[in-house]
């Protein structure tokens, strides 16, 4: 299970990096969103998967799943939401002011 998820993480990272390297702002934002998905999964894997019960004391189980990565991911989810929202608005305002969402054009060059 861990191996499979790690491979999935690798695929998602590759997709995210490819999207990040493109010219359109929207693709870049999507790339960052996919990257954070991948990293959340990676954190999850690091704590071991399906090794214990839900981390709620009082459940009838002996050992709990590792709660630390879960807390980390919870924080990361919210932060990545904040970042995505900010980037989206940045892109939208850039488009309003500059009339383009193409980074190559925004830089001031017409063609590479």
């Amino acid at each position: 299970m861990e191996t499979l998820i790690t491979i999935l993480v690798g695929v998602l990272v590759a997709v995210a990096v490819y999207l990040l390297l493109s010219r359109s702002v929207i693709r870049i934002i999507l790339g960052s969103a996919v990257l954070s998905h991948a990293i959340h999964l990676l954190l999850m894997v690091m704590g071991g998967l399906k090794k214990g019960g839900v981390p709620l004391i009082g459940e009838e189980t002996e050992n709990f799943a590792d709660a630390l990565p879960q807390a980390l991911i919870l924080t990361a989810i919210v932060i990545s939401f904040a970042v995505t929202a900010f980037l989206l608005v940045l892109a939208y305002r850039t488009y309003q002011e500059a009339g383009s969402d193409d980074l190559q054009e925004l830089r001031g060059f017409k063609n590479e």
Partner: peptide, 16 residues
């Protein structure tokens, strides 16, 4: 992109 994916996978597996 592909090498980043591969590196992350290898790293993850090695750590586990």
């Amino acid at each position: 992109a592909i090498s980043a994916g591969v590196i992350v996978t290898v790293l993850g597996l090695a750590v586990q």
